[in-house]
Each structure stands twice: as structure tokens, then as C-alpha cells.
């Protein structure tokens, strides 16, 4: 039931946004000139496509992020049973977080939070 509601809301917004974007283009009788398609670079024109093998300067940070994101997955069920499990749950998650924190410290020393 709740999911149906969510899906309906999702589709309504999605369709609404699409319609708002598409309607004016039908009334617009101006042709899109080639010179209008040029991306903005302060008046200059690019020679090449911008789609490139982009140098993501923070790539090593994203690896650390994955570790935390996985941990997040364990935390959802953990949060629900936390009170019934008591101190044991706290200790377990504490250890887990402590290990991950060592990961942060190591990464920090290696300088992965800077733009490489």
C-alpha cells in the first residue's frame, strides 16, 4: 500500500517535470542554430568534446567510501534490534567503527583526502 503511494507520487512528479519541460518547446518556432549549441566557455569555442577520461582527483577517497557504505548496510538491521541486544550490539558496532576509523587515519596519512 505504502509502496503504491510512493510510486504514484514519483510518477506524478516525473511526468509533471517532463510536461513542463516539453510544452514550451512545441510553441517555440525558433530553430536551434549550430552556433547556439556550443557550450559556454566565456565566448570561446571548444575544439573537442568535453566527454573525456576525466581525472577524478579524489578516486582513492571513493574506495574508503565504499567500506563505509557497506557498513551502513549492516547498520540498518542493527538499529532495529539494538535495544533488545543491549551492550553486546554496542560493543560489536563499536569495534567495527573503530576498525574503520583506523582506515580513515591511514587514508589521512596517505593524503587521500587531498586533490591528488
Amino acid at each position: 500500500m505504502a509502496l503504491t503511494g510512493l510510486v504514484i507520487i514519483f510518477i506524478t512528479f516525473f511526468a509533471g517535470a517532463l510536461i513542463v519541460q516539453k510544452l514550451p518547446t512545441r510553441a517555440d518556432h525558433h530553430q536551434l542554430a549550430e552556433s547556439q549549441k556550443v557550450p559556454f566557455l566565456g565566448g570561446s569555442s571548444p575544439n573537442t568534446h568535453a566527454w573525456q577520461r576525466y581525472h577524478i582527483r579524489y578516486y582513492s577517497m571513493t574506495l574508503l567510501f565504499i567500506a563505509f557504505e557497506m557498513e551502513m548496510m549492516f547498520m540498518y538491521p542493527w538499529a532495529v534490534v539494538y535495544v533488545t541486544e543491549g551492550v553486546k550490539a554496542l560493543a560489536e558496532m563499536g569495534m567495527f567503527l573503530a576498525i574503520l576509523t583506523v582506515g580513515i587515519l591511514y587514508g589521512w596519512r596517505e593524503g587521500i583526502f587531498r586533490w591528488q
Partner: peptide
């Protein structure tokens, strides 16, 4: 642009916590 609409959309059920979508895993 179609995808961006989704970003504005999906969260709305939360705007009135007791009415719209009463999802058991709301946080997820």
C-alpha cells in the same frame, strides 16, 4: 533532464510523516 525530476520527487512522501507513505523502512 528527465532524471532530475526524480530528485525533487522521491522524498516528498516524508513531508507529512503520518499520512502519505507509511513505509516500514523509511530511513532506508
Amino acid at each position: 533532464y528527465a532524471a532530475l525530476a526524480g530528485s525533487g520527487v522521491a522524498i516528498v512522501p516524508f513531508s507529512s510523516a503520518s499520512v502519505l507513505a507509511d513505509l516500514e523502512v523509511g530511513i532506508v
